[in-house]
Design a protein around this nucleic acid. Sequence first.
DNA 1: AATGAATGAGCTTTCATTCAT
DNA 2: TATGAATGAAAGCTCATTCAT
Lengths: 213, 213, 213, 213
Amino acid sequence: MAAIAKTAKRTATREQRRQQLIDATMKCIARKGMSSVTLGDVAHEAGLSQGIVNLHFESKDKLLNETLRCLADEYKTQFNRALRKSGPAAADKLHALMELDLRPSICERRKVAVWFAFWGEVRWRPAYREICEQSDAYYDKVVQALCIELIADGAYKNLTAARISTILTSMTNGLWLLCLINPETFDRHAAMNAVDEYLYSIFPKHFGPVETP
Amino acid sequence: MAAIAKTAKRTATREQRRQQLIDATMKCIARKGMSSVTLGDVAHEAGLSQGIVNLHFESKDKLLNETLRCLADEYKTQFNRALRKSGPAAADKLHALMELDLRPSICERRKVAVWFAFWGEVRWRPAYREICEQSDAYYDKVVQALCIELIADGAYKNLTAARISTILTSMTNGLWLLCLINPETFDRHAAMNAVDEYLYSIFPKHFGPVETP
Amino acid sequence: MAAIAKTAKRTATREQRRQQLIDATMKCIARKGMSSVTLGDVAHEAGLSQGIVNLHFESKDKLLNETLRCLADEYKTQFNRALRKSGPAAADKLHALMELDLRPSICERRKVAVWFAFWGEVRWRPAYREICEQSDAYYDKVVQALCIELIADGAYKNLTAARISTILTSMTNGLWLLCLINPETFDRHAAMNAVDEYLYSIFPKHFGPVETP
Amino acid sequence: MAAIAKTAKRTATREQRRQQLIDATMKCIARKGMSSVTLGDVAHEAGLSQGIVNLHFESKDKLLNETLRCLADEYKTQFNRALRKSGPAAADKLHALMELDLRPSICERRKVAVWFAFWGEVRWRPAYREICEQSDAYYDKVVQALCIELIADGAYKNLTAARISTILTSMTNGLWLLCLINPETFDRHAAMNAVDEYLYSIFPKHFGPVETP
DNA sequence: AATGAATGAGCTTTCATTCAT
DNA sequence: TATGAATGAAAGCTCATTCAT
């Protein structure tokens, strides 16, 4: 039992260390950009020594994979929380999801930049792609289900859930790029209004009009 | 006149070399990704020697800046050609622009990956941002102008040109990400249909409905 | 205490490494000349690996600065030892200092060449100049003090300590150049005789005549 | 005859080009230091093209050799002129030579730095050494001859011309180093006074006392 | 498990030299 | 003779990785 406890503790510690290093990695990417981050930076950010990353992650590549996975998990957690905390209606949920992506805690230049840092490499890193693909599939499934519900309920003709889901998720990803490139111009409220306008234009029975400025 | 010809030829040759190196750079980024490209790769791809890039661009950074600028210029050229070649009506033009972004020559995984490779670094490279910002401003201006025309013509209430422009350009950028991450799932025709569906939903007098599959 | 020992040992080791690299640098400069020495040479001379210098000195420049500083320190140590070991009289001390500069361990072509290698760059390296300036100031102060003592004691009229100090130190530096350029012709005994002749000519009460060959 | 004229002109031009490049080299060394000068710098300073040095000098090494030779020749010219222009007495001539080395046109930090730049490499460049050796031999011969004359004329006992020559030339070279390292402290008048003081101390019948400040 | 000195492959950059014009 | 684009060897430096402690 003592042995088990020890093992348990060790495992916990090991997991904490990994998390600590992943956190440090995100901070470093946010501060210096993907191409400038070194394992030395990460170790220093974590307050640990040079060789620590290779000890816990074998290689830089694996650290980055895990960091992306963690980033995706964090987002998923927020995604699910947004679903849970929203009103029960499909429209509420859909709106909550759209609002999530434009919430400061998500759509913040620093954070968005990290996402783009990974997407910038995704083409040449199958591991990144796999992680992103899985997440995307999940979000698409959820959004499509909500759309199907709305379409059925509103008897909207000519609407395809898959198309709308595509549009909606693309839109938020595209808005992040604006936030990244034109931070001065970019206005998260205007963006949210634009999204609401779109929702109203396709689901007029479920969403209200947006006041024109 | 001989002197002029000589000078002209020399200048042309110098410019050609630079273009050759920029082309090689794009190919290399497309093949290996931003973080793996070395000046050696670029020189080799161009069939020239090691030192050639520094001879013509001073540094790797400057080569990359020029490469992005070139990428942006290429896009702008296609953008303007699409505008010119489309029908005269604002709706035609708007549709042509949307279609452009999903045309295989643009929305091709290899090419999109290069854009994302640059966007992945944009946060930490003011030069990249400047280039992207300028392009974005131009496209936004054009798209807004078209929207304004349509809104006036169709007497659409509650629509804001700025919002629609934001949505439209975000959408295409977001669709590129889908193309990058889910190339198997991603269907450019479905995407185009989705965009058309959106256009129809907001400008019903100018765009026709999209057939549901 | 174990911890202290460890720390002490580590610190010592680090300092030893630096010293080892500085020693290797001097050897390399002596063997190949300033303009031919590479960090690879230094590392190889020290029996260590390529990157070692940058690990311990950050840059080649800083290594060279430290090497010069070390060279100056070594000289200062010998200077002070010569002062201490000589007879108590000012004349003894002055003579000891002059003799020091012409002693084989100092005025040896290899060593002199290293000094000139640094002086050859001193104009364009403020760091070198600062080091040399400080040393010079110290030696001048000591030599002037001795001269003052002699002048007072001998009631020499028309002599200025500052001038004599200038002459004496210039003379030895100039003799080093002879040793460097005309090693066959240069005779350290003749040089010492010449210096002694000068000392006798100005301080006849404190220095004896030199036998003419 | 036309052919001869042409050849003559070509030869002349060729020689002029070489001189032009040597001058540019000196300027560049003075401005940037030996270790930073590139053939590109030299060509640019001369207002000519990249490859010009290799065309006229075969290699960088040979250009530097010629530059040092030119520097030595310039000095020799001034040396001989100083001899010619001085009063006829040996004492006048000796004094003129000493004064020459401390004249602003010679003992100027920029110029001195160039000399030291070459001396800094002399150990590892036999060609440099040969040039310096020859010059030294010549100056030593002249100075010794003057000393011999003075010694004979003044019936100075215990003086050796060789020793005095050594002292005198060492002194001026050493004073140059002071000028190089302590330009603020270094005072050419004080230095000249110090030299005069020395001359007076050994040749009291030929040189007058120096006023004490 | 953690350290941090050491390694060495690989990068960007510089520059003497070559060569077609 | 002169040009200047091109070459390619070699430099300084970085950094993921290893390893003795």
